[in-house]
Design a protein around this nucleic acid. Structure first.
Length: 138
RNA sequence: GCGGAUGGCUGGAUGAUCGCGCCGGGAAAUCGGUGAGGAAAGUCCGGACUCCUUGAAGCGACGGCGCCGGAUAACGUCCGGCCAGGGCAACCUGAGGGAAAGCGCCACAGAAAUCAGACCUCCCGGCGACGGGGAAGGGUGAAACGGUGGAGUAAGAGACCACCGCCGGGCUGGCAACAGACCGGGCACGGCAAGCCCCGCCGGGAGCAAGGCCAAAUAGGGAUCGCGCGCCUUUCGGGGCAUGGCUGCUUCACCACAGCGAUCCGGGUUGGCUGCGUGAGGCGUUGCGCAAGCAACGUCCCAGACGAAUGGUCAUCCAUGGGAUUCGAUGGAAUCCCGGGACAAAAUCCGGCUUACAGGCCAUCCGCACAG
RNA sequence: GCUGCCGUGGCUCAGGGGUAGAGCACCCCCUUGGUAAGGGGGAGGUCGAGAGUUCGAAUCUCUCCGGCAGCA
């Protein structure tokens, strides 16, 4: 494990469990088209390796977990191999970063970009995600 | 050694660490097992499997296939052979039935494009106009009433002769496609069927978003139109005739009897389970076969997702590209640094085809050069 | 995943074996004091790509490439 992480990252998530939501269901995956469309109308941040969309859910919206995340890689990213690879890297980045930088009650959608998502240095990709989240939360 | 032909295999390896889908155990924490391809691709063919059509036969329409024999569940696939074309050769390529059943087309050029004939020209007579003989030569074209040579003639012509080609006939070899020699005919029969067509063979339609089950919700539907609620007989069992049901028609069988069919309007759902992996299955051995393949025996169980699982990072090694230094200086070898890993990811499942593919490996064969 | 359809000048489309066309747009000229309209002339095409059939292919056949639509 030589990925340079910031303090506390990579360890079992504590931030969300402290918020008393239950650590095993802290983050779930968005699978409904409706939720993707809602996120696409909210705020977004573009980085060389990805585009991040974030939306604070309304209070009456039902959800099984405080944080939800979805991944989108359209045909613009490339063929099936390129799309799968981009999606996997985004998932890995989200696994490392989101437990420490996400805010409860929010939905996030990570969108893959052609070449950028697959070829960018993984550490730079992590920085892209951290930077985008910080900007979106302001 | 150089150049080439064919067939087949492989498609980075190991480890560390953090993770993912599915299956099994467990109350849980979690533990164990397992997890992409030769093309998983394109969706171009063929099937299995489902649903729709009451079943069978015949005819028709439409579509596909097409040398011969074999393989196969089947095929437009594969194997072996034949023929034609290409190559010095190994070998490669070919949708390769029928053009004397009929129709159609063959632009331009050319005298003439399939059925008659003659533009320049050749020969004879003649000053010439012209008359007659002939189709060798020129020219046009993708293609011009066999080709080459001889003999012959005024010039010429299968009118004659030899060889080749073509057509017909039987014979021999072969299961056959076809091949071979022989005899006969002086030659008539241009091409296109991936134009219509003829002949032979095959094919009902839709597709896993097929289809089945469960749950929830609303409705328990409405309107219009068409054909109908049979007839005869009876010993009350039935029989006959109509009518409707064969997604073209006809015939036969069977079924149906009071509803059936068509169109439009309105309402609900975007959930779960199943189909879903023991199969025309893989591997090995033996036998049969030139081969594709088939048979017997043994052995193994090998992805099952549904916003869709195999990854992220790092190290070493391996193949490979570039640069530097040293040794050797003909090829090359060693060390260090940097770069860097083909095409492409199951989506109901099989058999093929087609297309994409860095590099590496193996086998067989051919030509040339050298040596022997 | 399955099933269909379409690729021809810059745009919209014809042409279905024999030298690639039409309308709009573009360029030049005439007309006008000038512009539009009108008239005359002109340029612009690997017919999506590659094989095959044919003497000859935009057209017929096959294989790829790209785009669009439908099906729970």
């Amino acid at each position: 494990m030589t990925v340079p992480l910031q303090e506390g990252e990579g360890q079992p998530a504590t931030v969300l469990s402290c918020l008393d939501y239950g650590s095993d269901q802290g983050i779930t995956v968005i699978q409904k088209r409706r939720d993707f469309l809602a996120a696409s109308r909210a705020k977004r941040q573009a980085r060389p390796s990805m585009v991040v969309q974030a939306r604070k859910r309304k209070a009456d919206e039902p959800s099984v977990s405080p944080v939800r995340v979805g991944y989108t890689c359209s045909k613009k990213v490339g063929n099936a191999v390129a799309r799968n690879r981009a999606k996997r890297r985004l998932r890995e980045a989200a696994r490392l970063i989101l437990p420490h930088h996400a805010k409860p009650g929010w939905d996030y959608v990570l969108i893959g970009r052609k070449d950028g998502t697959a070829e960018r240095e993984f550490t730079a990709l992590l920085d892209d995600l951290r930077g985008a989240l910080a900007k979106l939360h302001k």
